[in-house]
Nucleic acid binder design. Structure first.
Lengths: 114, 114
DNA sequence: CCGATCCATAACCTTCTGGCTATATAAACA
DNA sequence: TGTTTATATAGCCAGAAGGTTATGGATCGG
């Protein structure tokens, strides 16, 4: 799991960590702030933050004994770029769904006119 | 890790699995086809495929004793949607970089004219 | 029917993950 | 200086992840 992209995906594969990121999207927050919504110990949150930090998704500053965290979304851009390659595939799927629904509608219209 | 999005991110957090998906983006392939590029045992590939299948990223059909796999990109759309929320953050960062570079250039220009 | 092919499953091992408690560190505060 | 507050670290544990070899099952081909 040496590569950066794998680390990013792995960091995002945990709902607690995603919730932390969503909170940080609103602005800087301390470890205590981030821990509050969860029924988890403080060390557990610190571990999650370390995972996010190693993935480059979070950076920290210093404010007295606090270590405010802030979001660094750059690695998510890499995720977005990677995933974008598959856009045509899911759009194709939706296109087929549209065709199916249109055909279905056409069939129903034809039946109505019988 | 019960939720679908976590399962998708976890599935994507492995370079072997991402390579398999990239191969499948080119078209259907058998397990043997998919295993060929890797220095891994066949059961290892089967395990990876099972992870991808449980994440909904891959589906399989039947062709004699073969089980051709094909890509299902729909879960990636969910990933794309989730990640999109952070676009403004990474773009803001790039904007700040642009401002920084522009200011830097302005300073250099000013120094040259001294 | 029999061997070869394709793939899945079982059993096992090691490493990683995510949680805990207890403790250490660092800075503020009284 | 001693206490409280904020956070990190250490040590432990259970379960999941990712690999292996060995084996089983389905299907084609002779």
């Amino acid at each position: 799991m040496a590569d950066a992209l794998s680390a990013t995906f792995a960091a995002l594969a945990d709902p607690t960590r995603r919730a932390i990121l969503e909170r940080l999207a609103l602005g800087e927050a301390t470890v205590m702030d981030l821990a509050a919504p969860f029924d988890l110990s403080q060390p557990a949150i610190s571990k999650h933050l370390k995972v996010l930090e190693r993935a480059g998704l979070v950076a920290r500053s210093r404010d007295a004994q606090r270590r405010p965290c802030h979001l660094v979304a750059a690695p998510m851009q890499d995720v977005a770029t990677w995933v974008e390659r598959y856009r045509q595939h899911w759009e194709a799927r939706l296109d087929r769904l549209e065709v199916y629904l249109r055909d279905l509608q056409a069939t129903e219209d034809a039946e109505e006119s019988e």
